[in-house]
Amino acid sequence: MNSKKILIIGASGQIGSELSLKLRELYGNDNVVASDIKEGNEELMSSGPFEIADATDQPRIEALIEQYKITDVYLMAAMLSGTAEKMPMKAWDLNMNSLFIILNLAKEKKIEKVYWPSSIAVFGPTTPKQDTPQTTIMEPSTVYGISKQAGERWCEYYFNKYGVDVRSIRYPGIISYKTLPGGGTTDYAIEIFHEALKTGTYTSFLSENTSLPMMFMEDAIKATIDIMQAPAENIKVRSSYNLAAMTFTPKELASEIKKQMPDFKISYVPDFRQAIADSWPASIDDSEAKKDWNWDFEYDLEKLTTAMFEGLKVNAVKEN
């Protein structure tokens, strides 16, 4: 395992920061190089090598791969759904050009393995909403979704045409107490915990019965590492795998929070993100991931809620 030399691009982001620390735990601090266009949190910066790098700067990325003798790249840099709608061209540039840089380096055999995250945003209003299949109608209506769908096609193309060992997961909404929301449509499910502890109230930007697939960060990190550690012959899907854990609405999440905070109050003022959420699936069929590389989740809604409150309270104590 220690022959691995890993570069995480976008390591200061929501998933990247926690993934970097877990990979350092598994492969050794010096074998996992974190990079981002901005500095990360103190733990990320102090626990191993960190490099400032723009994901779209090919010479810089290539120099890092050569300097550290990188074998595996996790390309986590992306502009998320809510933010991307405000800056479409900038989002397209970041989300697509960063991927081409890495795929071409893998094609040239300068790296051995690539991880690139996709999203449920690849689906659209015409996709079956319940138990969305692995292979189905995909007509995304957001900039983020269009870039992720295009990325999936390119990943599969580079595997079929050039033998690039690229692996991918379609993440649902990811919930964590360690990092702040990053501009995604499912971020209400993180914000609600912060506001519950701070003010005892929350105004949701999605309507009360908007059902979306969600996952606790621990499970998302586990899935990411599991798919990268699986034997290449087990990875049958080279576009991106469906991934699921739980599905809930803002109303259902609020009800779970009220079990621990009976006085908690929620209101609903949907904004532009409501239309994005309405175009996404309500639940996901991830049987292919289960079959091919034994995926399974640990955290349901009750366990997630407890973990979020416990984690945020510990963080508050540390900050004070």
Rank of each mutant, 00 (worst) to 15 (best):
Ser141Ala: 12
Met217Tyr: 01
Asp286Met: 05
Trp92Lys: 13
Lys38Leu: 14
Glu112Gly: 06
Thr305Met: 07
Glu195Trp: 10
Lys69Val: 07
Lys198Asn: 11
Asn95Glu: 06
Ile174Ala: 13
Asn234Cys: 13
Asp219Ala: 05
Trp280Ser: 05
Lys178Phe: 05
Pro125Val: 11
Tyr27Val: 15
Ser147Leu: 06
Ser279Met: 02
Met87Gly: 10
Thr199Tyr: 09
Glu252Ser: 08
Met261Ile: 15
Pro59Ile: 04
Arg238Lys: 11
Gly151Arg: 11
Phe159Lys: 07
Ser204Pro: 00
Ala220Phe: 04
Glu218Leu: 13
Ala84Glu: 05
Glu310Trp: 00
Gly311Met: 08
Ser20Ala: 11
Val314Cys: 11
Ile6Thr: 04
Val237Ser: 01
Lys265Ala: 14
Tyr74Leu: 05
Asp296Ala: 07
Tyr162His: 15
Ile257Glu: 01
Ile101Cys: 03
Met214Leu: 15
Ala245Lys: 04
Thr186Pro: 08
Thr135Asp: 09
Asn95Val: 12
Ser283Leu: 03
Ala63Gln: 14
Tyr144His: 05
Lys198Pro: 08
Gln14Pro: 01
Ala84Asn: 11
Val32Pro: 04
Ile6Glu: 05
Glu62Thr: 14
Ala150Leu: 10
Gly311Gln: 08
Met217Thr: 03
Ser255Pro: 00
Ser207Val: 06
Leu206Cys: 01
Ala63Ser: 15
Lys107Met: 10
Thr179Ile: 13
Ile8Gln: 09
Glu310Cys: 02
Pro133Glu: 15
Ser279Val: 05
Ser20Pro: 01
Asn104Ser: 08
Asp278Lys: 10
Gln130Thr: 08
Lys110Ala: 12
Asp286Lys: 03
Lys38Cys: 13
Lys110Gln: 14
Thr185Trp: 11
Ser118Asp: 07
Val143Asp: 02
Met87Ile: 14
Lys258Phe: 05
Thr203Leu: 00
Leu197Asp: 07
Arg60Asn: 12
Gly183Val: 15
Ser17Gly: 06
Glu66Asp: 11
Asn97Phe: 12
Lys313His: 04
Met1Gln: 09
Gly40Asp: 04
Met1Gly: 14
Leu212Trp: 00
Asn104Ala: 11
Pro181Ser: 12
Leu75His: 06
Leu212Tyr: 00
Asn2Trp: 10
Ile284His: 04
Ala84Phe: 11
Asp93Pro: 12
Leu80Thr: 14
Ser279Trp: 04
Ile169Tyr: 00
